[in-house]
Design a protein around this nucleic acid. Structure first.
Length: 396
DNA sequence: TCTGGGGTCCTAGGACCC
DNA sequence: TCTGGGGTCCTAGGACCC
């Protein structure tokens, strides 16, 4: 029988900030940016949640609901550091770890009984170990399946442990709102409601063929989840494998919308540099470059172009991004957001001819050197010299 | 309610090939 | 001459998650 833990840190970003400034404890705190900024709430303290503030809510709305809240920008470096601390503790309990995000992870505890005791006792031990090592509250769900453990850790909040014994998976899920199932969002909830399905138990009772016909693959997956079955069945063993990313992207929302071509190009250059840098860090080359742009009215477009070879060079990414942008931008219309994304990864360029290979190697070294300089002097100092070049060139 | 930034996966149509 | 079927790649959009 498998034993899977899901560990979820409570109000992680806020709790980390409290470590650095204990006077924040117990107060309404919002991490995500200043109250009057464009942006959304990344994390809200439990005191702030009492006013209706929750993550993904626009900061301005949060301010209206709770003007006395303390608004913080957030410090990613701190969160990564403490996330690593949590990971270190998890590793003491099992080598089979999968960090699902910065503040949550799965642990395969199958076969650790002799070392750590039965599941519930082990979960309490882990809960306390994380608290001792990091000073942070966390919640743990334990069961035979990833999905059930994830839902259980959510039910255990704040700062609790919940164990679902083998065989009790479906009856634990049945009374919960369908929205509690990971994968059912606003839209999915609406379509289920229109069918008279409100609880997970209602969903579990439905005929699989009906769900497949009506919702395709997604419907089938939801039916499985409602019954407490993991996507890969009960015995999937994918915990502990970490893969290369499928895409790397950066985007930016302007403080004020702009139709200034020079400013927009500068942003594309900057975003391309950031993407290129991450590609080099991962040792990846990308064949497809995609841009994303959003107008003032929030209508959003993506446009992609696949190269005949893979690249990790800022200039090639930028040239492609700029080409796509000028081909699709309704010039003069104000832009709210720009983004650059690379995908279609491979480990080399796939270019066979020697000349472009040599040239690429030179450029790669140059950009890697620039990466080092940016480490030393900060991101803002070193940029593409071509940002303001006037002529437009179609990429090869 | 005036809506971030970083991701994943799925769908669907069209091109193109055999 | 109006017309198959499968496979794969590319592109665009959308739901969802943290």
């Amino acid at each position: 029988m498998r034993s899977i833990f899901h560990i979820d840190m409570d109000a992680f970003f806020v709790s980390v900030e409290e470590l650095y400034d204990p006077s924040l404890k117990g107060k309404p705190v919002v991490v995500g940016g200043r109250a009057n900024e464009r942006g959304v709430v990344s994390a809200a303290s439990y005191a702030a949640r009492k006013f209706g503030v929750h993550s993904a809510m626009p900061l301005r709305t949060a301010y209206q609901l709770c003007p006395q809240a303390i608004f913080l920008e957030g410090r990613r470096d701190r969160y990564h550091h403490h996330s690593q601390q949590v990971r270190d503790v998890l590793e003491q309990f099992s080598p089979l770890i999968s960090m699902a995000s910065i503040d949550e992870g799965y642990l395969d505890m199958t076969g650790t009984e002799r070392l750590h005791g039965p599941a519930l006792a082990a979960a309490h031990k882990l809960h306390e170990a994380i608290r001792r090592a990091t000073g942070l509250n966390n919640s743990i769900g334990a069961s035979t399946a990833r999905l059930v453990s994830k839902v259980a850790s959510d039910q255990a909040k704040p700062n609790g442990v919940l164990w679902i014994p083998p065989g009790a998976e479906a009856s634990f899920l049945a009374p919960l709102d369908i929205r509690k199932i990971p994968g059912v969002g606003k839209t999915g909830e609406k379509s289920f409601h229109s069918l008279g399905i409100y609880k997970t138990g209602d969903l579990a009772k439905l005929d699989e063929r009906f769900l497949q016909d009506r919702f395709g693959k997604w419907g089938l997956a939801m039916a499985g989840k409602a019954r407490g079955v993991d996507a890969g069945g009960w015995f999937d063993t994918d915990i502990g494998v970490s893969e290369d990313p499928r895409s790397i992207s950066h985007e930016h929302t302007y403080i004020e919308d702009t139709a200034d071509a020079a400013q927009l190009e500068m942003s594309l250059a900057h975003l391309s540099e950031k993407v290129g840098r991450r590609l080099r860090e991962h040792g990846l080359h990308a064949r497809t470059v995609q841009i994303k742009f959003r107008y003032s009215d929030f209508t959003t477009f993506t446009r992609a172009h696949s190269l005949d070879h893979a690249t990790q060079l800022d200039t090639e990414i930028f040239d492609t991004a700029r080409f796509l942008f000028h081909r699709n931008w309704r010039a003069g219309h104000k832009i709210r957001l720009l983004g650059v994304q690379c995908s279609g990864f491979s480990e080399s360029t796939g270019q066979l001819d020697l000349l472009s290979g040599e040239k690429n190697e030179k450029l790669r070294k140059m950009f890697t050197a620039a990466d080092t300089l940016r480490d030393k002097f900060g991101d803002s100092k070193i940029h593409l010299a071509r940002t303001t070049r006037p002529e437009k060139k179609k990429p090869e």
